[in-house]
Design a binder for these strands. Sequence first.
DNA 1: TATAGTGTGTAGTACATTATACACACAATG
DNA 2: CATTGTGTGTATAATGTACTACACACTATA
Lengths: 116, 116
Amino acid sequence: MRFGDHIRNVRETLRKGDKKYSLRQVAIRVGVEPAYLSKIERNVFPPPSEEVIGKLSAELGEDRDVLLAMAGKLSGDLQQVILERPRLFADLIRQMKEAPDQAILRVVREVRDGNW
Amino acid sequence: MRFGDHIRNVRETLRKGDKKYSLRQVAIRVGVEPAYLSKIERNVFPPPSEEVIGKLSAELGEDRDVLLAMAGKLSGDLQQVILERPRLFADLIRQMKEAPDQAILRVVREVRDGNW
DNA sequence: TATAGTGTGTAGTACATTATACACACAATG
DNA sequence: CATTGTGTGTATAATGTACTACACACTATA
């Protein structure tokens, strides 16, 4: 599914329970022109900037990284982490490319629990 | 050190052993205007595109990911890997942010050796 | 039925990115 | 000493990114 379709789906779903989720009102709360959001939702315009996607994710209760991914963008803070140790993280990510979800989850947990 | 300085250093070093590494000749082999490479090396222009950096890294025998990092860019193929499973990789990277190099290396080796 | 709210069409803008083209002065080489 | 090669200055451009402004027709509400 495209970025715009997803935003529209989520917003329309929220709207059923709360009239505050009209395109116009969401646009204003997020800080963009309603016409702009309209075009984004219909995929007439490409997804907006990272900043706007961030506000949109907060507003709609969606995962920021997932929305960014649907927009083909990678969060700036994650990029920063990688760019500080490029060789290490390049290896890590390329190694994890083929790994099953389970394996990645296990690594995350192990590192979080301090097993290193 | 800035991107341009590094490129100039590496190129000038190579040049001492081989006259083929003049700015002009490298530029031509890489496929850009010499004047452009000149500006890049003096940081008059920002670093070039990922594509040009790729060719430059091959030409100068430098690590592609490191050069890209110096340019503030993240390799497109790495982005792809992350964007396919954004939640998983976002967690992984944020978890690894504070981890010492050793820990990351260990994980890379363990996964490579199939210990999962 | 006036008014307020809704989504959208058309048009235009500001800025960044990623370069090219050409001319020039200087150095090296045959 | 003419030619070839060198790095650089100035000017320009094509494309992409990320929007705004405004008018319009339709719908719901009071």
